[in-house]
């Protein structure tokens, strides 16, 4: 088991290294103006000075080497455009916790609402609950989030008699953003659970359990639900990451100073140091998420063992 995990982590490091190198080279293909907030009003001498100072006149492999050297010593670089001359770590520090809180709350809500909903729909297959749930799922998938988020904010705040913008110290103002963020995943989990449970209900072991005289609710939760949950658990960490990245709409609407819109923002402003740092962060979370997901699957499902390559599922 330890060998397997260490192998996975080694692989993860190599992957991270490659992703970062590719992104590093990619962002360096962009015009140098990204390094200077005042580029359009600077003289040529100023620009040349700046480029030399930043080491941009060096060959790519030297730049790449320096980047990784700095990275290993914990230096993510300095933002040049997004916030002139401020260390990237200093910018990210207050944003990460907030995104984590919102993301995990949203994930929690979507699990707490999505799973029971799926179970209910499966139990009432073809009846009212099932249809109602289907309408909800279809609606969430069909209408662009950009549209219904705005509706929720406008009418939700009016209905709740609260301010339109987010205020971390007022618990009421957390409700709508978290709710909005979890909607997509609620639909997704409900759909997933329903589908698997409906499939599993026809299986022989369920028939056997019925014949054995087990209570239907016990069959549902002890046997069927667990089997349905296993493959989904694998994607939970990834889905958490997607929730955070996908929170860009919510963050811009409610003025939440999180990570969601940051990547888009710094890419558009060509702040290379920030782009790299955020890609590093997201890629790391993504990769660790995949490993975690595989581990969870191995642990939850007795049929899968560490010996087999997790890729061959």
């Amino acid at each position: 088991m330890i060998r397997y995990i260490s192998k996975r982590f080694l692989r993860a490091f190599i992957t991270l290294f490659i992703i970062l190198s590719v992104v590093f080279i990619l962002v360096r293909q962009m015009p140098v103006e990204g390094y200077f907030p005042n580029y359009d009003k600077m003289s040529k001498a100023q620009i040349e000075n700046g480029i030399r100072q930043l080491g941009l006149d060096q060959p790519m492999y030297v730049q790449l080497f320096r980047f990784f050297r700095d990275l290993l010593s914990g230096d993510l670089g300095i933002s040049r455009v997004y916030r002139n001359n401020v260390a990237v770590t200093e910018i990210l520090a207050p944003k990460i916790p907030l995104s984590l809180q919102l993301g995990s709350l949203a994930l929690l809500v979507s699990l707490l609402a999505g799973l029971p909903m799926g179970v209910l729909m499966a139990r009432h297959k073809g009846r009212f609950f099932d249809h109602l749930g289907t309408v909800f799922i279809v609606f969430i998938q069909a209408v662009p989030a950009a549209v219904y988020y705005l509706f929720i904010q406008l009418y939700g705040t009016e209905w709740m008699h609260i301010k339109m913008l987010f205020d971390a110290s007022d618990w009421k103002s957390w409700i709508l953003p978290v709710f909005s963020m979890s909607l997509g995943n609620i639909a997704y989990y409900a759909m997933w659970v329903r589908r698997y449970m409906v499939d599993e209900l026809n299986k022989d072991y369920v028939q056997l359990a019925r014949i054995k005289g087990l209570k239907s609710s016990k069959i549902m939760f002890r046997h069927v639900f667990r089997n349905a949950f296993v493959p989904m658990a694998q994607y939970l960490p990834t889905s958490f990451l997607n929730t955070v990245i996908g929170s860009i709409y919510i963050e811009s609407l409610y003025s939440i100073p999180g990570m969601g819109g940051l990547l888009v923002d710094v890419i558009k402003r060509q702040d290379n140091a920030m782009v790299q740092a955020i890609v590093l962060l997201f890629a790391t979370v993504g990769i660790i998420g995949l490993i975690l997901g595989d581990l969870m699957m191995v642990i939850l499902d007795p049929r899968i063992s560490f010996g087999t390559k997790a890729g061959n599922r």
Binding site: R11, A12, T15, I18, I19, V23, L26, Q29, M30, L241, N242, I245, G246, L263, V264, I267, K268, V279, F282, A283, G286, I287, L290, G311
Partner: peptide, 23 residues
């Protein structure tokens, strides 16, 4: 291909989408 897959599958789609659309 397996190694390539392991790398590519690890990059969040949204990031690729944003980066490419921008460049």
């Amino acid at each position: 291909f397996t190694e390539l897959y392991n790398i590519l599958d690890n990059i969040p789609t949204t990031i690729v989408l944003i980066l490419v659309a921008y460049i």
